[in-house]
């Protein structure tokens, strides 16, 4: 019975994985991964990790994948073609990837199965009742692995904050997609700038005179003919100091 379940679980897992790797439509890939996760949960159950199986289904398949679906919906169906890629040797990269992957797989097989890990041929330790139950996991989490627990929760907090920061819009409803972040035109505090700023001492001194340290929009630097830095000659187009 266990063998049958194992094979069902195993084949399902691998099928889902293959689906993720090969399907074109991103929505379908996400669904394929959900399938993969569910069958993986079956495997977990077979290994007596009940809590973990449940956590997997609820958290992973339930929450994370839903998040994925949302993003896929937002981003849209970008069907990327296989041929027009900027990477040189794009096609042969696929072949190379497959070869590397196969290489890795063979090595792992040899490592895991062929080297005679002690206990691989055994059935493992006897089953302790309560192994894998939530109580069992909770006990461990709050005693032996308390630090990891706390750090993990902290990590979740950071991730949440980070995600919000990454995805928020910046000032104004207007589309900022066209904003070109040209470094030379960013407003900087006086004295922390580029060589252009350092070389054109007249504007620097003038800004210092005005005690505003360049945070206010200053005049474009007057044409300096002394040290004659040719880079210096381009006036900033947006009128900002530097």
């Amino acid at each position: 019975m266990a063998a049958v379940l194992f094979f069902i679980g195993g084949i399902g897992t691998i099928a889902g994985a293959i689906g993720v790797v090969t399907l074109r439509d991103p929505f379908l890939t996400v669904l394929s991964l959900v399938v993969h996760l569910l069958f993986l949960a079956v495997l977990f159950l077979l290994l007596r990790a009940e809590f973990l199986a449940a956590a997997q289904v609820v958290v992973y398949a339930g929450a994370v994948m839903v998040l994925y679906i949302f993003v896929v919906a937002y981003v849209g169906e970008e069907v990327t073609l296989g041929s027009d890629t900027r990477a040189p040797l794009g096609a042969s990269l696929r072949l190379a990837s497959t070869v590397f992957g196969a290489l890795l797989l063979i090595e792992l097989f040899i490592a895991l199965l062929g080297t005679g890990l002690r206990g691989i041929d055994t059935k493992g330790s006897p089953y302790i009742p309560g192994f894998g139950t939530p109580g069992f996991i909770g006990n461990l989490l709050l005693t032996r692995f308390l630090l990891a627990f706390e750090i993990a929760s902290f990590l979740l907090l950071i991730a949440a904050v980070g995600a919000v920061v990454l995805a928020r819009r910046r000032g104004g409803i207007a589309e900022e997609a066209e904003e070109e972040l040209v470094l030379a035109q960013r407003r900087r505090p006086l004295g922390t700038g580029t060589t252009a700023e350092a070389v054109s001492t007249l504007a620097f001194a003038a800004a210092h005179q005005r005690h505003d340290h360049g945070t206010v929009e200053a005049q474009p630097p007057p044409p300096v003919d002394g040290p004659g830095d040719p880079v210096d000659e381009e006036p900033s187009p947006t009128g900002g100091g530097w």
Binding site: S97, F100, G101, L103, L104, E107, L108, I110, A111, T115
Partner: peptide, 12 residues
């Protein structure tokens, strides 16, 4: 991945 395969090979 190639590097990882290499390391695994070495340990093998």
């Amino acid at each position: 991945v190639l590097g990882a395969a290499g390391v695994a090979f070495y340990f093998l």
